[in-house]
């Protein structure tokens, strides 16, 4: 099953910590967003493998924009 992680709010992508193919476990930080003068980690809620990263650092994302697609393990 695939799971999508989407942006909760307008933000700028500060850093991306994983690549496609990487294994992640629930609680891992995959992306750091910057918004409201704060660095907000994007944390995965399930164990799985990263299928696709849809953003690069510097991108501006809006609420609902796709950030990461995961395959749950």
């Amino acid at each position: 099953m695939t799971a999508e992680i989407r942006a909760e709010m307008v933000a700028q992508v500060h850093s991306v910590f994983v690549e496609a193919g990487a294994a992640v476990t629930a609680g891992d930080t995959v992306i750091l967003l910057e918004s409201m003068k704060m660095e907000i980690p994007v944390i995965v809620e399930i164990d799985g493998v990263v299928l696709e990263i849809s953003v690069v650092p510097g991108d501006v994302v809006y609420e609902g924009d796709l950030l990461v697609t995961l395959a749950s393990s």
Binding site: E8, M9, S35, M36, M38, I40, I43
Partner: peptide, 8 residues
Amino acid sequence: NPLRLGGC
């Protein structure tokens, strides 16, 4: 909760 929406 700053983790969600920066706590706004």
